[in-house]
Design a protein around this nucleic acid. Sequence first.
DNA 1: CAAATAGTGTCTTTAAGACAGTATAAC
DNA 2: GTTATACTGTCTTAAAGACACTATTTG
Lengths: 248, 248
Amino acid sequence: MQDMSEQEFLRSYDPGRYPRPSVTADIVVMTLYKGTLAVLMIKRGGHPEKGKWALPGGFLQAGEESAEQAAYRELREETGIAETRLRQLATFSDPCRDPRTHVISIAYTALVPEGQMPLFTAGDDAADAALFRIGLSDGILTLHRDGQTLAGGDLAFDHGAIITCAVQRLRGRASYEPDAFELLPDDQSFTIFQLKRVHEAIFQRPLDAGNFRKWFTRGYVKPGKAVATGAHSTQAGRPAALYKLIQD
Amino acid sequence: MQDMSEQEFLRSYDPGRYPRPSVTADIVVMTLYKGTLAVLMIKRGGHPEKGKWALPGGFLQAGEESAEQAAYRELREETGIAETRLRQLATFSDPCRDPRTHVISIAYTALVPEGQMPLFTAGDDAADAALFRIGLSDGILTLHRDGQTLAGGDLAFDHGAIITCAVQRLRGRASYEPDAFELLPDDQSFTIFQLKRVHEAIFQRPLDAGNFRKWFTRGYVKPGKAVATGAHSTQAGRPAALYKLIQD
DNA sequence: CAAATAGTGTCTTTAAGACAGTATAAC
DNA sequence: GTTATACTGTCTTAAAGACACTATTTG
């Protein structure tokens, strides 16, 4: 054994010697829906947790892809979303979180621009897909759609905890990273107040218009991360200057 | 198939239908060594990557334990460290990161108080264990011990990237979370300048004594997160007030 | 005494929040 | 006109950094 070369070792290596867990990539897809932060959930059509709402995601193809690649693939297959940026959130590995066997979930977040969420049903594992508005205060997560409110038992696996984690991360990042711009309908043409509404949805509290303008000007316009296009919006009220985000 | 109950489904579920990756928990154990931030590495005694330096860690026992439990277990088995707090860092899942098979690493960080790192060799997989001082600027990681400097090829797997990630996270957190206190020799009896030296090691730059004192007083003493014990240190120079951290 | 560490205070800049007030559009 | 949104400015407070200065110990 000790005298083997690395090549000999690898030829004789048996990856099945130890029991291995299954690994999934799950994605918390968030968008703005009617002015509030919402998450995409898929109603499970098969066992386990049949009939409960779950995050999009699926099993990683071992040896073929990374968890991030699996997340992109599952997102495309289950929701049609292809043009988005995934960020790794955290990994959930409690051996009892899935009743089938030990299933580890590597969770990602995705932000979809307001109004650009494709809401068709797809995938043989998905009977239904829907956006649920997110409420999170004092660590208590609530999900609702129309009159319906999801209780703890309506959510599959530990996906409620994953969503909570994702919203907290988004709130933490939005103050100092340009994540919120990904929720704008168009980050190449937006007004300061559109951006303010996005931040209000993320933090679930009203922001002062003048102070928000200062924050945006200081942090984005002055350092050249965003510039006024010269065009103006035409809506109710005085026309607003349109800005575009500069891609790095 | 469609008419099965969940119990029937679970009885018939075969977890071996799809290939699964192996999963390890690896731990970036950091401490202060001679005034600089250092990381605990173990020289691999067996294939693969034999002779290279690797992070402590090992395979998760599927179905038996979470990744965090595996990290605690491996840390205790390989280094004897039992009393520490692990924080999940990130998951590394490139299918080629390990030459054996697809091995996913769920990485954790641990902070060990200065002078309390047990440095005996242990474990049948570990031929040697050592502390390497960390240098990280402009995203370039350097590890050195005495005269020795580790080059990229001396590190096993992608453990260099994991360490880089851990140091960046520690630097990001140290300004607003009490992580640095875990590196003090004793968080129940320390001087402000001991804490300053810890922060200087983390950020690898000198800090202003007066300003640091203000930062500590504002952020910890005033809100009651740390209190003066009344005792004073006796060393070279004027005796310094000793503080203790209030455990939440 | 020098050297070393401990501790205070001052000045400036920057950021954020509360809030008043003016500007320009649709109706 | 009202309503709605756009935009500017003022005041206060807090935090951070540069830096000068004083205090108390050892040797």
